[in-house]
């Protein structure tokens, strides 16, 4: 069972993602509400996968990807993006993100992406 860390500043998104992941056989080992905490939690938990929101206070998704990649260059990070954030997704990919999902997403897409990692 793959372990996942959910990083998103919206409680609702964290909740929704958690429900989807747990239903589909993933183990959610932690949540964080901004990029900084996300990176910190990554270091503590070393999950298999991280889902990372892009727009967050304190440290956004791209910054967090950079930090996490420093902890573990092999880290698997999936960006959660909104429409219209192409530039940011691209930068996240360049920073080392493995893949991305566009909101609003369906359960199937979440599963597909996470299974592909």
């Amino acid at each position: 069972m793959k372990s996942v860390l959910i990083v998103d500043d919206a409680m609702f998104m964290r909740y929704t993602l958690r429900k989807i992941l747990e239903k589909n056989g993933f183990l959610v080992v932690g949540e964080a509400e901004n990029g900084l905490l996300g990176a910190q939690k990554y270091g503590e938990l070393l999950p298999d996968i991280v889902t990372m929101d892009i727009t967050m206070p304190e440290l956004n998704g791209i910054g967090a990807v950079q930090l996490i990649k420093q902890i573990n260059p092999q880290a698997n990070i999936v960006m959660i993006s909104a429409m219209g954030q192409q530039h940011l997704v691209r930068e996240a990919i360049l920073a080392g993100a493995s893949n991305f999902l566009v909101k609003p997403f369906s359960e199937e897409r979440v599963v597909e992406v996470l299974n592909s990692i």
């Binding site: 500043d9 919206a10 609702f12 998104m13 929704t16 727009t55 909104a82 909101k103 609003p104 997403f105």
Partner: peptide
């Protein structure tokens, strides 16, 4: 507004 947009879209 970004957050609300995302959640409402979901």
């Amino acid at each position: 507004m970004h957050t609300i947009k995302g959640a409402a879209a979901m």
